[in-house]
Write a protein that binds this DNA or RNA. Structure first.
Lengths: 117, 117
DNA sequence: CTCTATGCCTAGAATGCCTACATATTAGCC
DNA sequence: GGCTAATATGTAGGCATTCTAGGCATAGAG
């Protein structure tokens, strides 16, 4: 996995996961891992700062849930603003991937070099 | 355009453009712009450092061509190593976009150039 | 007891795109 | 002639984001 590719999609993936129902950090990594058939491994060093950033920006809200006598999980729920951002990022992703595929699949070559080697 | 999305695909796009025949910086930006129907605007501050980096890494070779009495163009030609990297990045991109679409719930659906229309 | 999995977190390094600028030629326009 | 835009390459510093590598703690399996 080229980590550079993940830049710009991480927030979208997180918003997508938590939009139907709240979830917590560790569960998000597992969910993404499953849905991508083991391909997308979110690292904690990327995910947790992203979650905190998104909460600061008002895209997410968090609350603690006791999952045992001394085990706690920090759940994240998407806000209205977060939902709007999710939809924007979905459109952006579609346009971007279509644009990249357009460049990678274009057959007609225009304006390239008639160069001499 | 979310510039973060471009990270990791810029090199692939450049290799793709110059792989059939050599080209030069300015022409590459115009070619990408055309093929993506105006969506992907490569900035000079991104492209030129990338070209230099890729030449340093042995993915590209360059040579000057006179395009007028006092105008010169620096053409880039892909190397064998660059071709191998291009193929690797193509596979990587397919896997990555499929994985993202898998998480987003659009399994099997890939963005096509028509989506730009 | 030890190892793995679960669960949260941060500091600093590394990466790589962008803004803004610098420099210069060429062509169209009035 | 003078003005503007397009063509053409390049660098410096800023900025955002990921990763590495750790810390801390509970729980279950062998």
């Amino acid at each position: 996995m080229d980590s550079q590719l993940l830049a710009g999609t991480l927030e979208m993936l997180v918003l997508q996961i938590v939009s139907p129902q709240p979830s917590y950090g560790y569960a998000i990594t597992q969910e993404v891992l499953q849905r991508s058939r083991g391909y997308l491994e979110l690292k904690e060093g990327s995910l947790y700062p992203a979650l905190h950033r998104m909460e600061r920006e008002g895209l997410l809200e968090s609350y603690w849930v006791e999952a045992g006598p001394k085990r706690r999980r920090k759940y994240y729920r998407v806000t209205a603003k977060g939902l709007a951002v999710l939809e924007a990022k979905q459109s952006e992703w579609k346009r971007f991937s279509a644009a990249v595929n357009g460049v990678m699949g274009a057959t007609g070559v225009v304006g390239t070099a008639d160069a001499l080697a």
